[in-house]
Design a protein around this nucleic acid. Sequence first.
DNA 1: CTGAAAGCGCTAACAC
DNA 2: GTGTTAGCGCTTTCAG
Lengths: 344, 344
Amino acid sequence: MNTKPGAGRTALARATDAITLEDVAKLAGVSPMTVSRVLNRPELVATATRRRIRQVIERTGYVPNLLAGGLASRRSRLVAAIVPSITNGVFVETIQALTDRLWQEGYQLMLGLAGYPAAREDALLSAVLGRRPDAVCLTGIEHSADVRKRLMAARIPVVETWDLTPTPLDMVVGFSHEGVGIAVARHLVGKGRRRFALVSADDVRALARKRGFTAELVRLDQPAPACVVFEAPSTLALGRASMAAMLDRGDVPDAVFCSSDALAHGVLEETRTRGIRVPRDIAILGFGGLEFTRHTSPALSTVDIDRSAIGRIAAEAILARLGGQQPPLRIVDVGFTIVDRETT
Amino acid sequence: MNTKPGAGRTALARATDAITLEDVAKLAGVSPMTVSRVLNRPELVATATRRRIRQVIERTGYVPNLLAGGLASRRSRLVAAIVPSITNGVFVETIQALTDRLWQEGYQLMLGLAGYPAAREDALLSAVLGRRPDAVCLTGIEHSADVRKRLMAARIPVVETWDLTPTPLDMVVGFSHEGVGIAVARHLVGKGRRRFALVSADDVRALARKRGFTAELVRLDQPAPACVVFEAPSTLALGRASMAAMLDRGDVPDAVFCSSDALAHGVLEETRTRGIRVPRDIAILGFGGLEFTRHTSPALSTVDIDRSAIGRIAAEAILARLGGQQPPLRIVDVGFTIVDRETT
DNA sequence: CTGAAAGCGCTAACAC
DNA sequence: GTGTTAGCGCTTTCAG
């Protein structure tokens, strides 16, 4: 046996190598399978044996190789999540909630950052699927044909988040962005606003909100909004610059709908600098319901999203499927709330 | 051969299974090894063969199993990063920078969220090491004996970030938190401030800043600061409440050093609510240099950290080591800048 | 430039 | 309860 290359490892292992399950087994005087059981189904192992093995594991600092385990069992205990960015604060709580819930059940989240607008989603997905995740969580419902194909081929649970569709790849947890736009239009018109503007990134979801917003204004016999649309990601500085440009060219709105809270802050700043009173002369609405908006700017309204709930529900859906159950719900609308600081 | 369980797979694979390298090889009429080469060392394969194989890969949608690859090659092309939280915005740009740079070189970042105060670091590290990352990036320099032991045993590059020490586990990229405290004390004293306060989370690094701050005040013959210290994580609301408590009990400082920007915003708000003028009557200093602070509050000063640089340099250090070179620098001080809004 | 053999470290499935 | 056998899907190493 020692004549073959690579053979002849002993319980001591090649000096630089990590301890293996086999090493532990030898040291404990049992078969590898028993050690494996202690790790995965301890209830199947006699208490005495179990304790002895646990001691060896402890003493040697053995760390099970999950690559090997995943390969053999075809279960990686890995869930992949792909988001556009974490610099955009709206996604972090969703990720946090996902991570927490999955961790409780022994799954690890593998996070992928796709960039705007999903520039790397394709490449990222390949890289990620190569790790054989047990499930995938995506942001949004728009994916290339290739992405859809690969995901179907992977035959694993998929949750799409932060949007809604009647035809999800598998499951979807989110809310209607067009619905947000519509609701905001109604809200502002209801408040008596009449000269509308929109400052937005060209992100797909932001554009859906824009669509709903403008369409609803038309329906309500209102003038079309003055729009500034730019390439994502949006920043506070961009919001400020956009508002400046708008005012400079003579568009003086009494209501501005921004595609993010950061943007809204920028718009607010520019507006204040010019002595326009907020919200008296102008209403400014952000999107996302981030903490800064809620606390620092009593003048700023926002569309509030329960960001954690999205993660929590997505995790629950995934876990149900991985537990062999049917998904409790394939389509979950978490809704949204317009928080108007004028009225509260 | 077909008599053994599990044997007898053909190029078509068991219906529900993913395509394997062997399937591709059969379809292309070559050995698995040649396909493997096309994937990893394409320059070793004849152009015609390569093209043929690439076509099969394309057509079948083959996704290499990186678990198997990692197991066989002992290189996972995975780098693990452990941060306390992404809800605390200071870390996200570091993560982003790390992710980007590593991705360029074909590595994927696996993010672990340890919680405050590193509650899960131990368990997380085990879970993470089980995936056999090629390198690990940690936040901070304080780790349990167990964590240190496991990391040494793993024999992989390790970068500690967001702090500094003369005795890193391996490499360290950050700055001195005590130094920040000292610099802030000097700065405020130099500005003529005389009644100091500190609002801080009990996070290790925040406490190091506190230490430097108070020690330096003593050295400069200043009165000790009034302190409010609470459990991490810190929020804007906590900052506000802390300031309220402080003022209510009669401590009226003319300078407050906060352990985060969010906190500083809260303090600012409470202060303004009470009609105290900022920065005239009171200087408020945050920590982290986040965008909101820089833009929304001309009254708020901050300790600015080049958060991306930390990630970028950490990535560079890791890549150098993985490329077989010695680390260019084992200890990197990225420094910090006090941005005072009174003067700019 | 290509292939064959062996094995990475683990677990499924079955025997005892 | 515990052990045995046969892979999981890839890469290493060496042969041609």
